Amino acid sequence: MSFATADLCDAHENLLALGTLRVLEPVFHLFSRTAYFSGQAVTLKVFEDNALVRATLEEEGAGRVLVVDGGGSLRCALVGGNLAEIAQQNGWAGIVVNGCVRDSLEINELDVGVAALTTCPRRPQKRGAGERDVPVSLPGALVHPGEWIYVDLDGVLVANVALD
């Protein structure tokens, strides 16, 4: 399905007013070859540790979007080229990271969508700490598991239901 977040906002002003469609703050940058992606959210809450990110991306993605609340840390990357490639191979539509990515040139060659705050070359720890399928707080909105995520060059939307 092709879409533009601006058009979705225009077509669903009533949902914006109700708060069932939310716009994340414009702090996310889109990486990857794809210009847009969408799907139901699988949520993770981690901090400077990406073992749970890897374990989740190794599962069948089924067109879903992994939403990672990394606490906004800019000290290390939670997703790199290897994890983005795993996501692509396993059928994930994309990844939204409240934190950093690395290997941006590699990610830009992939067809899986990746949105993050910025880049950082440092890798994270791999202790396995974190929580899955919990509400996560991203800049501008709380995201619940199963909500719908829409991402393009203009921004990131979170909706309680699938949008047409």
Rank of each mutant, 00 (worst) to 15 (best):
G91A: 09
I95F: 11
V68M: 10
A84Y: 06
A87V: 08
L138Q: 02
A62L: 11
E109N: 13
S137N: 03
G72R: 08
L110S: 07
A115D: 00
W92Q: 09
A84H: 06
G146N: 09
A141N: 02
C76Q: 09
V112K: 01
G99W: 05
V114E: 05
V143I: 04
L66H: 06
R102E: 07
A87M: 08
S137A: 07
A129S: 13
G94S: 05
A87F: 08
E60F: 11
P145T: 04
G128R: 04
R132L: 12
R132C: 11
A115M: 01
L110F: 04
C76R: 07
G113W: 05
V101K: 09
L78K: 08
P121R: 12
L74N: 02
I107R: 04
A62T: 00
S104V: 15
P124G: 13
D133Y: 03
R127H: 11
C100A: 13
I95Q: 13
R132S: 15
V67M: 07
V114D: 05
S104I: 14
V134F: 01
A84E: 08
E59P: 03
L78C: 09
V68T: 10
K126C: 14
V136Q: 00
S137Y: 00
H144Y: 06
R123W: 08
D103P: 02
C76H: 12
R132T: 14
I95R: 13
L78G: 12
G70M: 09
N108M: 03
G94N: 04
A77P: 04
G140H: 06
S73V: 09
V112N: 00
Q88L: 12
E85Q: 15
V97K: 10
G140I: 03
V136Y: 00
C120N: 15
E106R: 14
L117K: 02
S73D: 07
V112E: 00
G80L: 09
G146V: 06
G146M: 05
N98A: 06
V97I: 15
G128H: 03
D111L: 11
A77F: 03
V65Q: 00
E58Y: 06
A115P: 00
I86A: 08
P121L: 12
K126M: 15
C100K: 06
P135A: 12
D133M: 06
E85G: 14
Q89G: 11
T118P: 01
V112F: 00
N108S: 10
A93T: 09
G70R: 04
T119S: 12
N82E: 12
E109F: 04
A84P: 11
P121E: 14
S104A: 15
L105K: 05
A77L: 03
L83R: 02
N90H: 15
V67G: 07
A93N: 10
E58C: 10
S73F: 03
G72M: 10
P145D: 06
L110H: 07
E106V: 15
